[in-house]
Nucleic acid binder design. Structure first.
Length: 267
DNA sequence: GCTAAATGTTGAT
DNA sequence: TCAACCTTTAGCT
């Protein structure tokens, strides 16, 4: 489930799991054989998430940098002790005497030099999960464009880490029409949305999944949110809005499905 | 058991 | 605008 929260969670987890001893790196699939060989035997010395991008440092600081983007299907699988027999398309296996981490299906898995990292960070907007993030950078773009706020939230150069689920949910929680032009969003609305994203993404890192509903808006109000109670509008096409009961709408925007309530998020 | 769709991005057409 | 990446899951039969 790779939006920003998944990557930040992985960055933290992989650091805890693999730090210390030299890491044995292999590419059972063969597609990353050269890259794996170049970090094989080095220690994991840094682990950082920027938006949906993961950067793992090996060896002396900045000696080797592994860049991973999970894309839509990519996944890390980890464990302690002996790893299972590699099967299927296993792009990368990282292994220490204590633990292992397998990477499958990423869009990007490559070795970066410091300049490539610099270019990556430079083309990404602020990431609500990073302490160094500045929402004003995103506001500078949002406040000047006729591009819809629904499209802007998905644009990684405007802000980094938000995907289709958080987009739909944060707009619903703010009661903002996804098609409203960026320049028609007020500064207060944007700062409130940013603050909400910080809260939601941090909760996502903690829980390992996206839950955006308040307990009082869930069909089942007690205890932890079940899957069917976790969202207000995402993938709820035709189901009644949790606030007003109007059927939730869906329409493609930039080749992705957009979900919203036309009453709660009126134009 | 099968098919379609999915939390994303890149590169070709 | 579309195919590719390659896996998992939801929703059918």
């Amino acid at each position: 489930m790779p939006e920003g929260h998944t990557i930040h969670r992985a960055a933290r987890h992989l650091r805890e799991l693999l730090s210390g001893p030299p890491v044995h790196a292999t590419s059972p699939q063969g597609r990353f054989a050269t890259g794996a060989a170049s970090i094989d035997g080095l220690e994991l010395t840094s682990s950082e998430a920027v938006g949906k991008h993961l950067l793992l440092g090996f060896g002396e600081p900045r000696e080797r940098l592994l860049h991973v983007h999970l894309g839509l299907y990519g996944k890390w699988q980890t464990g302690h002790g002996e790893p299972p027999e590699p099967k299927g398309a296993l792009r990368l296996r990282l292994q220490t005497p204590e633990a292992w981490a397998d990477l499958r299906g990423p869009t990007a898995c490559e070795i970066y030099d410091p300049e490539q990292r610099r270019l990556l960070v430079a083309r990404l907007g602020p990431d609500p999960l990073r302490r160094d993030a500045d929402p004003e950078r995103a506001w500078a773009r949002i406040s000047r464009t006729t591009t819809s706020i629904g499209a802007l939230l998905m644009d990684q150069s405007t802000l980094a880490g938000v995907g289709n689920v958080y987009r739909a949910e944060v707009l619903f929680r703010a009661r903002i029409d996804p098609l409203r032009p960026g320049k028609a969003v007020t500064r207060d609305e944007w700062l409130a949305m940013w603050a909400d994203l910080v809260t939601l993404l941090r909760a996502g890192v903690r829980a390992g999944r996206i839950v955006t509903t308040l307990p009082e808006h869930r069909a089942r109000r007690s205890g932890r949110a079940r899957q069917e109670d976790a969202h207000y509008v995402y993938r709820r096409t035709g189901l009644p809005c949790r606030i007003c009961g109007t059927p939730v709408l869906t329409a493609p925007l930039l080749a992705r499905n957009l979900y919203w309530c036309a009453v709660c998020q009126a134009a």
